[in-house]
Amino acid sequence: MSGMPARISRADVAHVARLARLDLTDDELERFTDQLGAVLEHARDVEALDTEGVPPTAHPLPLRNVLREDVVTPSLDRDEVLAQAPEAEADRFKVPRILGDA
């Protein structure tokens, strides 16, 4: 297993903020870099544990094959759905223009 990366940098935080679509101010960037660093530092003690051969638990339940039948159930009323939208047009959700990968 790969080790933990070095302490999170301001550039890392800026990159992550962009991935998460959060426009941060410079102040926020600064503060979050410190705070995330502290939390990740604490998280390092999981690194100390020997987990060789230990399977990950994604889920506390031993359930398998939870399936439903292919039967139609009622959909929502379109007007009710679109009434919640910040903007709608022609029965569709309206969004600003999409550049590249959004």
Partner: peptide, 30 residues
Amino acid sequence: GCRNEFGSPANTNVCPVCLGLPGSLPVINQ
């Protein structure tokens, strides 16, 4: 359980799950 149908009027085959509304959860179609 929304209909899988080509050509329905826009946004008529939608529910909390396929609209990703807060709190909704997926269940796999057998």
